[in-house]
Design a protein around this nucleic acid. Structure first.
Lengths: 143, 143
DNA sequence: ACGAATTACGTGCGTCCGCACACAGTAGGA
DNA sequence: TCCTACTGTGTGCGGACGCACGTAATTCGT
């Protein structure tokens, strides 16, 4: 009774996620970084030019739209983003990166990059990392 | 500014996890299956011969030891497992699969397997599935 | 043999999270 | 111009989750 490859793959995703995520979280918060959810939102905002509608942000980020709404509240309270009305559509609103938000994101980036690099570099050869990344992106594009 | 492969890989794990897990959850519960956490515990118990110490169970399952303790409570209340003292060590206790628990696990298995097969089969070729599984297991073994 | 350190486990508590719902705004047909 | 369907958003609520701690049992050094 051998396990199908798809099941082995899914089990691998589940396990790697549950093993690496807490380590990364600890390491980053120990170094005074931002919470992962904050960083994720700031990063996505930054790479989108600093301004995004809520629903768009919800799609790009790993969190639910609902959750994003609350995190943007927190970020706004911390002065890292600013809510802004959409003149073309009264329902929607933008999250806009403030200069300080951009600065904080830039400052936090190396901590995350180093953590990931370290945690995955320890486990896989460069070639395997590349192969894994390609396969995962292939799967995501087919989503 | 190209993203390192390790970061691409980690982002892929994060995204695939967040996309597939809810789908799988919905699909399974819609078909009257067990909660994923229940299934995970039952499966791990079954493949270990039906009896495992709590801490061992915590290590094998994707959940924290703390969480496992509570889930075993729920499973025991549902009659699917039974708590049992360890005669050789008064601190530890066993979770033992009941016949009904074993039956429920067996009955639920095809639902999960089909769901995973479907969700990953749609996204990756058989060869890619195998390659992905191998890479993830390689990473986990190095953990 | 006895106390300190360690291990296995359960639980109180606070956080994170998303579903279901409510509400305001928009689009489109008659 | 209404009236209806739909869309984008925020929020109440309850569940899932794990950390920190407490407790009981075992191990180990002396």
């Amino acid at each position: 009774m051998s396990t199908p490859d798809s099941v082995r793959a899914w089990a691998g995703v589940l396990r790697l996620h549950s093993q690496v995520l807490p380590l990364l979280d600890r390491e980053v918060t120990a170094q005074g970084g931002l919470p992962l959810s904050w960083y994720d939102v700031l990063l996505e905002l930054a790479s989108a030019g600093g301004r995004l509608r809520m629903s768009e942000l919800g799609k790009r980020v790993v969190l639910s739209r609902t959750r994003v709404s609350r995190i943007v509240d927190e970020l706004a309270a911390a002065g890292l983003v600013q809510r802004e009305a959409n003149p073309d559509d009264g329902r929607s609103s933008f999250a806009v990166l403030t200069p300080e938000g951009r600065a904080r994101q830039r400052a936090a980036a190396p901590v995350y990059l180093r953590g990931i690099e370290q945690e995955l570099g320890r486990r896989l050869s460069p070639g395997s990392q590349r192969a894994l990344a390609d396969l995962l992106e292939e799967a995501l594009d087919a989503g």
